[in-house]
Amino acid sequence: MTGFVYKELKQNLRYILLTVVSGFIPLIVLIMFRDSGETASDFQKLLEIGLIGGLLLAGGMEMAVLNGDDRKLWAYFVSSTSEGYKGFLRVKYEMIFVMSLLFLTSFTLCEQLITAIAADRGMMVESSASAIAVPLVFIQFLLRSVDIPLFYRFGAKRAIP
């Protein structure tokens, strides 16, 4: 494992794991409120609301990984590597991209499991939420493409209101 990837994993493992968990928010809500979900539309609403909530949480986690590098020590470390600042930024972008993929994969799995649970209860739930999730993830990429350069140019306090 190269230096930057190992550094990012060690620093941000909790945020990466939370991103995976955010894809399972509909399932967590279903387990917490076992008596909910009497009709297929209840499950559908749970999935759609869970998608929005999970996406917002995942977006927060993606921005959280940008913190923690503002200490001078990290600047010295980055400058001392052969890849330098460009390599540091590249790995950051790749990690945030992978976090979005992890969210989408975990949400798709969650949706399939909830659809299966509904089917066992005799209800037919359309698995359309993961189709909506794909364009939403691309909107997420668009937002990150604006956030990240502003963050590194102006710092956290000015870039993120």
Binding site: L104, V134, V137, F138
Partner: peptide, 10 residues
């Protein structure tokens, strides 16, 4: 193209 960029991770 869109799906292969994100959905293929599975």
């Amino acid at each position: 193209m869109g799906q292969s960029a994100v959905v293929s991770a599975g």
